[in-house]
Structures are given as structure tokens and as C-alpha cells.
């Protein structure tokens, strides 16, 4: 997993729960990196999992909610560091539907070893989009948060429902419906 995910996660924990909690979850976890992350490095996802579990324990917030929250936080990083990609798309549905075939292709050029989730489109029109999320990481709530933020970025109202296609949450069906501009 890319270092930036870890560095931004630590930033968010520090911002939201304080340095003490951050220190706690790092110390509680058995991390090969000893908690020292750099954005240009690459680390094991297992480290993220441990930190998330410990954070959930200490904060009493479910892991998925934490992931969702982290997704909302992480969108800011994308917005600030890769603002240009939004120019390529005229609508959030356009954007989201292009993740698999366009955005991830670009990502692969920069990080050839990146392991990315897949988004297979099932159905699409100007108002609705159905897609299936697949990833061993089961970070679908992270994806949901990012998608919501994207619609917000384009000032569009959206309702995103999802349905787990297996117990692990490695395959999830997303049903996205947009209705009108945000006033």
C-alpha cells in the first residue's frame, strides 16, 4: 500500500484523536515500519489493518466508519495534489465511471507496483450508475466516501446505496443515483 495512505492516515488520527491516540495505536500494533512512513514508500496493508483495529478499540468507533471517515479526509489530499484530474470530466458520473479505465491506468504509469481495486460498470446513464467494487482490502467504505465527495465536488446531490455480494466485503455492488444540483 502506498506510503501516502499511511502518512495521511496518521495525519487524520493526529488531527481527530490527538497525538496520544496515534502513539497508542502505533505502539499497540506490530509494525515492520515502526510507524515511520514516507509518502514515496510502500508498506504492507496489514499495518493499516492493525492500526485501524486498534483505533476502533480505543475510540469505540466501528472500523468501517473509521474507514469512511478516512475516505472523506483523504479526498482533500486528492483535491489538493491532483486537482487537474477533475478538469477531464464534466460530471461526477463521468468521473466515477472512468476510475477503472482511465484514472487507474494513469496511476499504474506512476506506480507500476500499485495494487488497485477494480470498479466494473454494470449499468450507466446520465442519472444513474451501477458498479461492482472488487478488492482484497475490502475498503468499500473508503470508496463510498471518495465517491460522495466527488459528487459534492461537482455540486450534485447523490444517493449511494450498496450491497455486499459476499461476507468479506471484497465484492460490493454500488447503486449511485444523482438528482439535481446542490443549491
Amino acid at each position: 500500500m502506498k506510503g501516502i495512505v499511511f502518512t495521511e492516515f496518521l495525519e487524520m488520527v493526529e488531527e481527530s484523536f490527538g497525538l496520544e491516540i496515534l502513539d497508542y495505536i502505533i505502539n499497540s500494533s506490530e509494525l515492520a515500519s515502526e510507524g515511520s512512513y514516507t509518502a514515496v514508500g510502500t508498506y504492507d496493508f496489514f499495518e493499516m489493518q492493525q492500526m485501524l483495529v486498534h483505533l476502533s478499540e480505543v475510540t469505540k468507533i466501528p472500523v468501517n466508519d473509521l474507514i469512511y471517515t478516512y475516505g472523506l479526509y483523504f479526498f482533500k489530499t486528492i483535491e489538493s495534489q491532483h486537482a487537474d484530474i477533475f478538469q477531464h470530466y464534466t460530471s461526477p458520473i463521468d468521473f466515477v465511471s472512468s476510475i477503472e479505465n482511465h484514472i487507474h491506468v494513469q496511476v499504474k504509469k506512476i506506480y507500476p507496483d500499485a495494487e488497485l481495486p477494480s470498479f466494473k460498470i454494470v449499468n450507466q446513464n446520465t442519472q444513474e450508475l451501477q458498479l461492482i467494487y472488487s478488492s482484497e482490502r475490502a475498503m468499500y467504505m473508503f470508496a463510498k466516501a471518495l465517491m460522495e465527495k466527488t459528487f459534492e465536488y461537482y455540486k450534485k446531490n447523490v444517493e449511494i446505496n450498496f450491497e455486499l455480494l459476499n461476507n468479506q466485503g471484497t465484492r460490493v455492488m454500488f447503486k449511485i443515483k444523482t438528482y439535481g444540483d446542490i443549491q
Binding site: L19, E20, D23, I26, N27, S36, Y37, T38, A39, G41
Partner: peptide, 22 residues
């Protein structure tokens, strides 16, 4: 608190060194 900060600092230094090495 100092301990926590020291640990954070060590993490930061380590992270920098790793970045430089990369």
C-alpha cells in the same frame, strides 16, 4: 507527552532518512 513526542520525532527522522534513501 515528551515520550510521545520523542517517539513521533524518531518516526519523522526515520521517515526522512528512508525517503532520502529512496
Amino acid at each position: 507527552k515528551i515520550e510521545i513526542l520523542e517517539r513521533a520525532l524518531i518516526r519523522e527522522k526515520n521517515a526522512r532518512k528512508r525517503a532520502e534513501a529512496i
